[in-house]
Amino acid sequence: MSGGDPGVTAWKVEWSREEIVEAARTCLLRAGAITDGFSGVGAVAEPDSLVVVFRWRRDPNVYAVDVAFPTELVSPWTGLPVASADEWAVEALSRLAEDLATGLVSRGRRKVRDGYVVLDPTTPPTSLLLGPTSARSPRSPSPPARGARLGPT
Rank of each mutant, 00 (worst) to 15 (best):
G103A: 03
L150P: 03
V90W: 08
W77E: 11
A145T: 09
V74P: 00
G103S: 07
S106A: 15
G4A: 13
L119E: 04
A135E: 06
R58A: 10
E22M: 10
R109D: 15
L129K: 04
V8M: 01
P141E: 11
L29V: 03
P76K: 10
G40N: 04
D48F: 15
V41L: 02
V13E: 06
D5H: 14
L73P: 07
A10I: 14
S142F: 11
R55T: 01
T71R: 14
D86A: 11
R57F: 05
A23I: 06
E87Y: 01
S134H: 05
A31Y: 07
S84Y: 10
A89Q: 04
P125Q: 15
V21N: 00
P125D: 15
I20S: 04
S2Y: 08
R30H: 09
G37Y: 03
S39R: 11
A43W: 04
G42T: 07
G7Y: 13
V105M: 01
R58T: 15
L150S: 14
I20G: 02
V67E: 15
T102P: 00
Y116H: 13
E98C: 12
I34D: 01
V112Y: 06
E46T: 07
S49L: 05
G108I: 02
A31N: 13
G79Y: 11
E19H: 07
G7I: 10
P124V: 09
W11D: 08
G42R: 08
G32Q: 08
T102A: 09
D5I: 14
V41H: 01
S127D: 15
T9Q: 13
W11H: 13
T71Q: 09
L130D: 14
V13P: 03
S137M: 10
P81L: 00
S127H: 14
A68V: 12
A31T: 12
V65M: 06
A31H: 08
K111S: 01
R146K: 09
P70Q: 06
S134A: 10
R146W: 07
G40Y: 09
